[in-house]
Simulated assay, not measured.
Amino acid sequence: MTWFSDPEAVARYAEGPVRLVPGFESLQRMATLLLAEHLPGAANVLVLGAGGGLELKKFADRQPLWRFVGVDPSAEMLKLAQATLGPLADRALLHEGYIDSAPPGPFDAATCLLTLHFIPAEERLRTLREIHRRLAPGAPLIVAHHSFPQAPADKARWLKRYAAYAVDSGVPAADAERAISAIAAQLPVLSPEADEALLKEAGFHGTELFYAGFTFKGWIAWKDR
């Protein structure tokens, strides 16, 4: 998306998730705690969609023995991630690109937060398979993104709830309406059932829903040992 290449828009990025994603800070905390269940000590974590650096900083602050490889297609967003990490940046290697730009691993865990809803289903499946291929046996994957029913009436209802939350967070009503129109027209959002089916088809098992915030859902799933 061209938005992620606009330096002025990127500079304001951190304001967006806090206002638009219900429980955003708690989502990051829960992701950290779920990873820590499996990674009690030193670990290498793959972070897909790492631009902005918000989850990288949360993970690095809470877990000083973890190191990271972050991947994002936007050079501007990766610059922001570097700045967000500050003195923690030496624990993260950042790569511009998509999943194919990530090293082969094996990684002890992976995350993909607020990213997969930008990727069409066929490419999303390939991305999940490539993440799976880079994980060590038994490693967890955490994903969270827009995921809500896609029948027209259901879709309209959930998008109106997203807009209502945005307005309640201080977003002008006209901007919120434009946002849901753009989501409906441009984002290849899937239903929760379809998202879970893709995780299974990509080779993950034991999928558990751990987060739900209006139009957003989050899961943890596992690679076989």
Rank of each mutant, 00 (worst) to 15 (best):
T2H: 13
L33G: 07
L33K: 07
L125E: 05
K200G: 12
L113V: 10
A121M: 04
L113F: 03
G52M: 06
E96V: 05
G218T: 03
A139D: 00
T84A: 11
E208L: 10
A164G: 12
L114T: 02
G41D: 09
K79Y: 10
Y165F: 15
E8F: 15
L114V: 07
L141A: 01
P17D: 07
E130T: 12
E55F: 13
S181R: 11
G53I: 01
A110S: 04
T84D: 03
G213Y: 06
I131M: 00
P140I: 01
A42H: 10
H95A: 07
G23K: 06
L113A: 02
S101T: 09
L113W: 01
E8L: 15
D100F: 05
V71K: 03
V167W: 06
R129E: 10
E37N: 13
Q82N: 14
R29L: 15
H117M: 00
F216H: 01
A109P: 00
T115P: 03
C112K: 00
E201A: 12
V71A: 04
S169A: 09
T115R: 00
A139R: 00
E8D: 15
T115Q: 03
A202M: 06
R12G: 09
D168W: 13
S169P: 00
A43C: 08
A185S: 09
H95R: 03
F210C: 05
F68D: 03
D61R: 13
S26D: 13
E15T: 13
G86R: 14
L141H: 00
V69E: 14
Q28S: 07
R126F: 07
A36W: 04
D90K: 13
F4I: 03
A50L: 11
V18S: 12
D108S: 06
A212W: 10
D100I: 09
V18H: 14
K200S: 10
A110Y: 02
A11D: 03
H146T: 15
A136I: 03
P137I: 04
I183R: 04
P7E: 12
F214I: 14
K223H: 05
E130R: 15
T32C: 08
C112H: 00
G52S: 09
E8N: 15
L46I: 02
P188D: 02
D154K: 07
N44Y: 14
L187G: 07
L198T: 04
E201R: 08
Q28A: 06
M77K: 11
R134H: 12
F59W: 06
H38T: 07
S147Q: 08
L85K: 08
W158N: 06
L54C: 10
H38V: 09
G138F: 10
S147T: 13
A185Q: 08
Q150T: 11
E55A: 12
A221K: 04
F68V: 07
P172S: 08
Q150L: 12
L78P: 10
G138A: 12
P64K: 08
L135N: 03
G49T: 14
R124T: 04
A102K: 01
A166R: 04
F148M: 07
P40W: 01
P103V: 02
H117W: 00
D6M: 10
